[in-house]
């Protein structure tokens, strides 16, 4: 299982690149939609990049359950190879 601090750092870099949110603002308790103003299509782009980077599959129906950055970190930690 990957280290969650490293996952959060990596995920924050992806969110910054896709959505233009400063990576320091991407913290575990933040909601993608409500706090970071990320729309559904940007979520797909984030998922695709996370899949490539972390070797994990994030299907669209799972993606809908990832409300916060922490949810995404937990999902990747639990499902990455």
């Amino acid at each position: 299982m990957a280290d969650k601090t490293e996952l959060l750092t990596g995920l924050a870099e992806i969110v910054e690149e896709v959505a233009g949110v400063a990576k320091d603002d991407v913290t575990a308790e933040k909601s993608f939609v409500d706090d970071l103003d990320i729309d559904s299509l940007s979520m797909v782009e984030i998922a695709v990049q996370a899949e490539d980077r972390f070797g994990v599959k994030i299907p669209d129906d799972e993606l809908a359950n990832l409300k916060t950055v922490g949810d995404a970190v937990d999902y990747v930690a639990a499902n990455s190879k």
Partner: peptide, 12 residues
């Protein structure tokens, strides 16, 4: 159309 799924397919 399933917007998110179509978007993922088309962009990858």
């Amino acid at each position: 159309q399933e917007g998110q799924s179509v978007f993922r397919w088309a962009t990858t």
